[in-house]
Design a protein around this nucleic acid. Structure first.
Lengths: 235, 235
DNA sequence: AGAATAGTGTCTCTTAGACAGTATGAG
DNA sequence: CTCATACTGTCTAAGAGACACTATTCT
């Protein structure tokens, strides 16, 4: 413990190894996917794990900035939605010793980072439902599951999942996205009704062109980020 | 500290200072209170702040164990409910340099730790509504506010606040507790109805004795800890 | 016209809000 | 008895589920 007047030196302390990791979700081909990075260094060299790493004290003003910096390096863009999930820490989660990871989860539209990811080999989108915890580095499998559960809750009482879509999207796309996240179908009418009543979307005036009736294109209002419905959708 | 090919030395890294802190809530005299500890060391020596401190790598198996150990030292007991709130980290929150704190929030019945706290002078319960952020060490004022907001949400969709009551309690006590946490009055009938329907309480068969009709005493079922109502109470 | 997709009308059912009413004890 | 507190009955309103219906485009 610190002796008062004496100068403080962090290396006098038995500090844990502290890192920041992120679970970046997107949806593509009706599947929920998560970004994985192939590790170059020990431990778990060659294995796939979450994008993240050490804090750079000069470059990162806070934890979220650190997470965003790492994600930018891997995807080429800053995610439009990021939120802290939890921190995992313990004596046995890293072979190098007592370690802590502060974990964020984030959402991004697949089209917005496709080119960057296609250009490298050590980054890939993996379907969440195809993952087994054992194939991933550290406790990253368990962390992805926790992030998925949190995202499922969000899909039941908010429109946060919209940030995994392009800037402009249709009601049907948003509903399909929620359905993929929570793993069930939803009633079209209930879904539209609650979002319309809460006035969370802006009608862009534009429409899609495709087979069938054109669909109106919407954007999320800024307040959609924090809005919470009083009643959950039933899962 | 297993060294693989290249020996790993944590002191080669620019690691942040990592601590664990807790926001321990209780209710007494119809007021929501939080546990504060007077700091003995720099920085902020003499100021009041959250109970917490450094991880002891030998003693703490994980982050939650660390938080519980610190709370036990200050209150004499392990809290019946504890959950991670968030982690705060940044270059400027601690004058010693880049630091991270992993924050838990916890609940305890006032009566269960009264004797231990009354016996020391560097620990006190402080009414949450009387706190100004400026009088506390670090960013602890802001953290307490975030913890309070999270607890308010919990009070709207769960019966987690019950863990701030003694083991056996009445419906009226539970409702009064929820009202103190969210800062409004609630409808008696609605409150009882939803809890009864969800079957979250065990009737102990006992009753209170006091002026007026005796009230039945209940305990929380284990599943009450994780239960989430589909619909929030209106705040 | 017919197929495909977008979007609406409307009935039911559940449950929270409101609040008046009844029950059961102490003094 | 009265008073205080616990607990219930019951009406109303909001909103989700269900699902049949209409609308608008394409080929």
């Amino acid at each position: 413990m610190a002796k008062s007047p004496a100068p403080y030196n962090i290396h006098d302390y038995d500090v844990p190894l502290t890192t920041v990791d992120s679970v970046l979700f997107t949806v593509h081909d009706e599947k929920l996917k998560v970004l994985l990075v192939q590790r170059g260094n020990v431990p778990f060299a060659g294995k796939w794990g979450l994008p993240g790493g050490f804090i750079e004290q000069g470059a990162d003003a806070d934890l979220e900035m650190c997470a965003i910096r790492k994600l930018k390096e891997k995807t080429g863009i800053a995610p439009p939605y990021i939120e802290q999930l939890l921190s995992q820490g313990g004596a046995n989660r890293d072979p190098r010793g007592w370690s802590v990871t502060i974990v964020f989860y984030a959402l991004v539209a697949h089209v917005n980072c496709e080119p960057h990811i296609d250009s490298v080999t050590d980054v890939q989108w993996r379907e969440v439902s195809s993952l087994s915890a054992k194939e991933l580095a550290f406790d990253h499998g368990q962390i992805i599951q926790l992030a998925h559960e949190r995202l499922q809750q969000k899909a039941l009482y908010s429109i946060v999942p919209a940030y995994a879509l392009p800037n402009e999207f249709t009601f049907t796309e948003l509903q399909a996205l929620h359905e993929v996240i929570i793993g069930t179908t939803l009633e079209k009418k209930s879904f539209r009704r609650r979002i319309e009543k809460a006035k969370l979307l802006i009608d862009t005036g534009k429409s899609t062109v495709a087979r069938g009736r054109p669909a109106k294109l919407y954007k999320v209002k800024p307040e959609g980020r924090a809005y919470r419905f009083v009643r959950n959708l039933e899962s």
